[in-house]
């Protein structure tokens, strides 16, 4: 069946993303899901550049560009302002990268979530500080090369589980999504938009440049991340009700890792260890979904 998405188009051509940019694809889908009553907050991230310099913009929604760590707070302020003006319909959406979410912006995100701000916080995760030239972040996966976790000493620790962190805030809605599953992604955006309170969307967005993969595999690699259970698609409601949305085929992780230059130094033992971790994570997720 053909993929069915809302026809609206609020991203323009001519933006400055690298070819095959997953963050650009993700933005397109999210805007399709949001409709026209939107104010967007973009803390420092690739999209600070992608959207274009003064006096231009590639987005046909109002956008407030802001400092790196302020995604949660600025959105809170806009929400408050709209509320006091009597506008409870416009969605306030923060669009942040993984660095601005997992690392420097985590505090302000946590604050907004704890206060239950009526905002949608979208993290497009390309697993490193790509805008500044591929430096490691809290979202960088174990074993990955980045310019600050060079091949001689690739990232030794695991990717931060931002979804668990957000679930622990008991916000009404948190979900993962992938550029490879646009209908699921748009459905989640629409669902989030229909809920009052803090909503969090964690979108897997391939970075061909930083991951050292050809641009054309951008979406395919994101799909592989889902199918290998490395990035499962699921929702968490009120911090406790887990639903798995796409049943992965459960391919071995090798296919995903071997396709990427940033992992090319990994040994068979490394992959075995990672496979075990992925299997364990999946079992845990399944168990959580069963409890729900």
């Amino acid at each position: 069946m053909p993929i069915d998405l809302p026809p609206s188009e609020r991203m323009t051509s001519g933006h400055l993303a690298c070819p095959g940019c997953g963050a650009a694809i993700a933005m397109r889908f999210v805007l399709k899901g949001l409709g026209d009553r939107v104010v967007m907050v973009i803390p420092a991230c690739c999209w600070s550049i992608i959207a274009g310099p003064f006096p231009y913009t590639a987005l046909k929604v109002p956008v407030l560009h802001t400092a790196f760590e302020t995604g949660g707070a600025v959105a809170s302020g806009i929400r408050a302002a709209l509320d006091v003006k009597g506008d409870h319909e416009t969605q306030v959406v923060t669009w942040a990268g993984d660095g601005g979410t997992f690392d420097i912006g985590l505090q302000s995100l946590s604050g907004a979530a704890e206060r239950g701000e009526d905002i949608l916080y979208v993290c497009y995760d390309n697993e490193a500080y790509m805008n500044t030239g591929v430096q490691g972040s809290g979202a960088t996966p174990e074993g990955a090369w980045t310019t600050t976790t060079p091949t001689g000493s690739p990232k030794a620790t695991r990717k931060k589980d931002i979804m668990q962190i957000m679930a622990a805030h008991a916000i009404p809605y948190a979900a993962t999504a992938s550029i490879a599953y646009p209908e699921d992604l748009v459905r989640k955006v629409q669902k989030a938009a229909s809920i009052r309170g803090t909503k969090f969307l964690h979108i897997f967005a391939t970075c061909p440049t930083g991951w050292k993969v050809p641009s054309e595999v951008s979406v395919g690699l994101a799909r592989l991340a889902v199918q290998t259970r490395i990035f499962p698609l699921y929702e968490v409601e009120d911090g406790e009700r887990y639903t798995i949305n796409v049943e992965p085929k459960g391919y071995l992780v090798d296919a995903y890792f071997k396709a990427q230059g940033r992992f090319k130094h990994l040994t068979a033992e490394d992959l075995e260890r990672i496979q075990e971790r992925v299997d364990h994570g999946w079992s845990r997720l399944e168990a959580l979904a069963r409890i729900a």
Binding site: T70, A73, S76, G77, I78, A81, R115
Partner: peptide, 18 residues
């Protein structure tokens, strides 16, 4: 808010919305 940084960020957001 959870910090002064966020306090200023929040009023920046609010003032940006007029």
């Amino acid at each position: 808010v959870e910090s002064e940084h966020s306090a200023m960020a929040a009023v920046i957001g609010a003032a940006s919305a007029g």
